[in-house]
Design a binder for these strands. Structure first.
Lengths: 201, 201
DNA sequence: CAGTGGTCTAGACCACACA
DNA sequence: GTGTGGTCTAGACCACTGC
């Protein structure tokens, strides 16, 4: 309070933000303590700014398999809460960490929100583009995590064998105004990836 | 504010709690909106009160494979941040939902905190016992999610085949004073279970 | 422009932990 | 008992949305 010349509630609010991020925790009557939140080799699940930002220390590259403009069918329209035949960018990429295949990612972006997308952006970081260039504010995401056997094509892309397990994450990503701009399905290489989630309360 | 005769900050705090739980979201200048948070058949990951509470509508049963008192080895002592040779309850169960095997769960409870445990409690709900009877307050949990092939024994317990995939959740569960009372590893039946996670900010 | 949410203040009192 | 965090008030002003 002295150092920043603010009221107690302001300090408490700041601490609250850090608690929400899982960096610290508070014990009534005792104090504020550090939470060990980073586990090596784990993808933090609350981080929605994309892999490129999360693993800035590693060499992250992408191989673009498809970039096309499609129209939402029944299923996608329902998942993305948009009208049928809405224009969507379809992006399919294999993402490599330090030259090892890490995940296969298939995304759909609502073209009414993400007005433009090209090959160059997809090879770098789509989320960097959305946040920094389009100035859009990402608010929250629903994530459904499951597990499946890989088919032959997918196994090839991830340097695994057909029938090997794969960790699947299905994301529905919302902007600060509550609209859905991105629906995606990620299939992770099970030998190289773990997810980390911090549950509170 | 009128209805409950409280100040605006109190209302805001209440709303904040619901936002934190993922039930609603706020849009600046616009209002508060419902978030569709329950997906049928998904285990909500932020729920730490155990499966029994989450799926109260379903028939949940457990088959106890092992309940024993062991001493923490190096690895467990490190994971549970306790001294080596600390007494731990070791519990291994298969959990059934509507008579179908759902998950294999292996847990370790610090006996300095969970003073007593018996077969009856393990067959019902350990978390109900901890919360209601021992009056302990669970504060947060770290969860590491991964995916592995099942071995022969595990496959048999889950009514699957050797080499089939399995969704693995490794939990480290903390009390409100920051101590770890439970470390557990759950192996889910991949055909029947998905996890739901709501990421915010 | 009216109504919503976001931020902040200054002060009060309660609950809990620890020496 | 002192110091920590938890809760609450009453009021102020700013920022954004939508008509």
């Amino acid at each position: 309070m002295e150092r920043f010349n603010v009221s107690r509630n302001t300090i408490r609010k700041a601490i609250e933000v850090l608690v929400g991020k899982g960096y610290i925790y508070q014990v009534h009557g005792s104090g504020v303590f550090l939470r060990e939140f980073s586990k090596p080799g784990c993808v933090p699940m609350w981080d929605m700014s994309g892999l490129t930002r999360t693993f800035s220390k590693d060499k992250l590259t992408s191989r673009l398999l498809d970039l096309s403009l499609i129209e939402a069918n029944d299923e996608l329209a329902e998942k993305m809460k948009c009208k049928i035949h809405t224009k969507l960018y379809h992006v399919r990429r294999v993402r490599y960490m330090n030259d090892e295949p890490f995940t296969i990612e298939e995304s759909f972006f609502n073209k009414d929100i993400i007005l433009y997308l090209n090959e160059d952006i997809c090879k770098k970081s789509i989320y960097d583009y959305i946040i920094n260039d389009l100035k859009l504010k990402i608010k929250f995401a629903d994530k459904i995590i499951s597990c499946e056997k890989l088919n032959k094509d997918e196994a090839l892309l991830l340097h695994l064998n057909e029938g090997d397990p794969s960790l699947i994450v299905e994301n529905t990503v919302f902007l600060s105004n509550g609209t859905i701009f991105d629906f995606s399905r990620e299939k992770y290489n099970y030998t190289r990836s773990k997810l980390l989630s911090l549950a509170t309360l």
